[in-house]
Design a protein around this nucleic acid. Structure first.
Lengths: 276, 276
DNA sequence: AAGCTCTGATACCTACCGGGTATTAGGCTT
DNA sequence: AAGCCTAATACCCGGTAGGTATCAGAGCTT
């Protein structure tokens, strides 16, 4: 009567994401009728209506939205259990550290040295680190406060720095010693790029939509957008651009994050204490 | 080939906790042979040996220990999904706040007022709050840093205070204006009580073993043990005892904790911002 | 040393249930 | 009204979880 199987959660997540039983069934590699039955049974077992069926598909109820969120984290936890157990059985297992492309090379190098352990570095797109950590693909992540979502992890601060804006060398702002956020966002010919929200949609605004670091780098190189980034990230240099300090941008702290209770904690603590 | 069902995780946890297939099967309400087969199959699917079978039971391998930890959090996440979804379907749902007995009444009262929402208060034993939060029995918890395990939660600090020791009025220390931790732990006739660790075992030491607040309160009242607690916890008064400040004990911060991503976050943030 | 006992593993059977196909039912478009 | 798209229902089949009976091995006891 009580606890669910992960199969039921997977099925529900598929339907909740597709909002269409047929497509969800195709994605799951099963036929539509068993899927309908599984969801109905799930609703009966929970005693809660999850979807409002409709001639043109389905819509989530409030309870459905809650289950979607909870099911995703639960499925991540199960996937993490599988990955971490498999890796624990491998005597050669390296530690997997995930970081986004463009993080400071010097810091990463120092960290790898300090850990004194074989470390495999996994690169991912912006904002993806938390997910890799949650579902067990990585053991530690290098993230940046206040940008990244650190909720649910233990963290150790490594390094704090201020931010600069990257502008074409020919631009009027390039001659300045420093600028403010207000000035930066008011530059009409160089609107700031827009990143997707957690749900994949984009906020409104004049700037170009980007999804990856490389897209952004491309746009910057083309002189189509302005960028505010931590000072050390100048690592990804553009020859034709200059960096101008942004005085009132929040400081960015590079942090090491790991799942609470993970055995890497002691390792990390000693390494972090040593060198930073 | 890949993802596990919660049934398999439940089975493994039972065996890992009992270290005995027969007892684990009984606990699960199934027969021993299917359980053996399920675990064997689990090991085959993961490609990892989880238990070293032995004539007098079973012992966990390294990988088994990893899976035990991961499986518990995964099962908690699934249980949380069920509970939270059920409650989301209930229009009357109150917010459930869990706190340990003995927390400051004034603070709790102020908090309940600030939340401006029906709140059900759930009392639990020391150190149990985190678990209630993780498996969905509660939405928010009142915890104390540095005592409680805050890993994996979002938190908001409410109040910080110093600690006092509670001694019988007749005791020599009772006349002092303040004492140090070293002095407190050196009192030979009043050894400090020992709490169980996470795994249920007790650290070594001369003091009495306690498992609940009421046991401890009883021992204090009897003059059998010494206590160092936050100043406000004098709430649970003993008529025959006095409180003496402990100058070098770490400050205790009362914090509100909730699962990351929970919708209570906004509610809590505004309430916490208001009144503390 | 023989036998008892306690452990987990194996063999085999049954029944449930997850999944398939075929079909129905309802609402929208045309 | 016909045709479509949706999800739900009806029904059948096969895999597998779970049961009982039994085996196998390592300490016991005597």
């Amino acid at each position: 009567m009580d606890d669910l199987e992960t199969r039921e959660l997977r099925y529900f997540v598929a339907v909740a994401e597709e909002l269409h039983f047929g497509r969800a069934a195709a994605r799951l590699g099963i036929a539509q009728p068993p899927l309908s039955r599984a969801i109905t049974q799930l609703e009966r077992r929970l005693g809660v209506r999850l979807l409002d069926r409709d001639r043109r598909g389905a819509a989530l109820t409030d309870a459905g939205r809650v289950l979607l969120r909870e099911a995703r984290t639960a499925l991540d936890a199960v996937a993490a259990a599988v990955r971490r157990t498999r890796r624990a059985g491998d005597p050669e297992r390296p530690l997997v550290l995930v970081t986004k492309a463009g993080a400071s090379h010097e810091l990463l190098r120092a960290l790898l040295d300090a850990l004194a352990e074989p470390v495999e570095v996994l690169l991912c797109e912006v904002g993806e680190q938390a997910h890799r950590l949650r579902d067990g693909q990585a053991d530690i992540a290098l993230m940046h406060r206040p940008f990244d979502d650190l909720a649910g992890f233990d963290t150790a601060d490594l390094h704090t720095e201020s931010q600069v804006t990257i502008v074409p060398a020919t631009h009027p702002l390039a001659a300045r010693d420093s600028v403010t956020l207000a000035e930066v966002s008011a530059v009409p010919d160089l609107p700031i790029a827009r990143w997707p929200r957690l749900d994949g949609t984009y906020p409104d605004g004049p700037g170009p939509e980007v999804r990856t670091q490389s897209q952004l780098a491309q746009l910057v190189a083309l002189g189509r957008t302005l960028l505010v980034i931590p000072a050390s990230s100048r690592a990804w240099q553009w020859p034709e651009h200059v960096a101008v300090p942004v005085v009132d941008a929040p400081d960015v702290t590079t942090v090491l994050a790991w799942p609470p209770g993970s055995p890497v904690q002691s390792l990390v603590r000693s390494a972090a204490g040593l060198s930073f």
